[in-house]
Design a protein around this nucleic acid. Structure first.
Lengths: 135, 135
DNA sequence: AATACTTTTGCAACAAAGTTGCATTCTTAA
DNA sequence: TTAAGAATGCAACTTTGTTGCAAAAGTATT
């Protein structure tokens, strides 16, 4: 855990370690709110906002778009952390039943051909449906 | 414009017509805020929220996820409006330069194979990069 | 065209989410 | 150990989204 922070040139603080720990312990993506409920008694709301922002910039976590006004975050793979920018090419799945959002690490986003004149920098794919636990 | 409302079994009111008009006049997807700045002097904020909600449910507009805390809305195609549910299978593109989000109506979302046990209900694909106007 | 009924709107009040500046505390590196 | 820099907590604030209710507008019927 401290390694992750040090590799990203971040100072090792209690709140950062705690938030990382929460991510490592979770099997699904977390919204700001999820993290807040897990540690708002220990750390300030503002600190959580700033920590997530920092982790995003350093490539420790990535954010997952959604249409429910709730951006969720998940740990990146090694490649992101070591290079400092994102290499997340996997599909995300949000279950309509349990509400959990997970990274489908084994499902790569297929290629798309954009119309002439468009340049792709990043691509996001989010699937909604029923997950294997709720099936 | 009135036809669209009537076809969706909605009563024709000034605010609904105005918001539809704004969408028809726009070449890109609009966030709640965009609409508010265009007509907050005429209509209440709450009305705009409720109108967008209604349009979504009736399949007049669809929402586009993003990682910037700004859900955007765009008009649906005929098929959505006539059937009352969404048939939006196109890719969305958000330009990192001008910030505009557009529907790439001609680019279909490619198929993905989900792992065993997952059922797909809806799929969203958003590409970030530089659009043809900013190129 | 007037009526009665239903739907929509605006207002107010509120709740939740996110941001900023600044003083204090903690980390790090020398 | 200490000095410099970075992160945190607090307070205050802005923005975003929600809810209940009375007033107004729309719709269908006569």
């Amino acid at each position: 855990m401290e390694d992750i922070l040090k590799n990203s040139a971040l100072s090792v603080t209690a709140s950062r370690k705690r938030i990382l720990e929460i991510f490592l312990a979770s099997d699904n993506a977390l919204a700001h709110q999820d993290i807040e409920t897990k540690c708002a008694d220990q750390y300030d709301r503002v600190t959580i906002y700033r920590t997530l922002q920092t982790f995003l910039e350093k490539g420790i976590i990535h954010n997952i778009p959604s249409t429910d006004n709730m951006i969720r975050y998940a740990l990146c793979n090694e490649a992101c952390i070591t290079t400092g920018h994102h290499h997340d090419n996997h599909v995300h799945f949000k279950c309509d039943d349990c509400g959990k959002t997970v990274c489908l690490d084994d499902v790569n986003i297929p290629a798309v051909n954009l119309p002439k004149g468009y340049t792709m920098k990043e691509i996001n794919m989010v699937v909604n449906g029923i997950c294997k636990s709720c099936k």
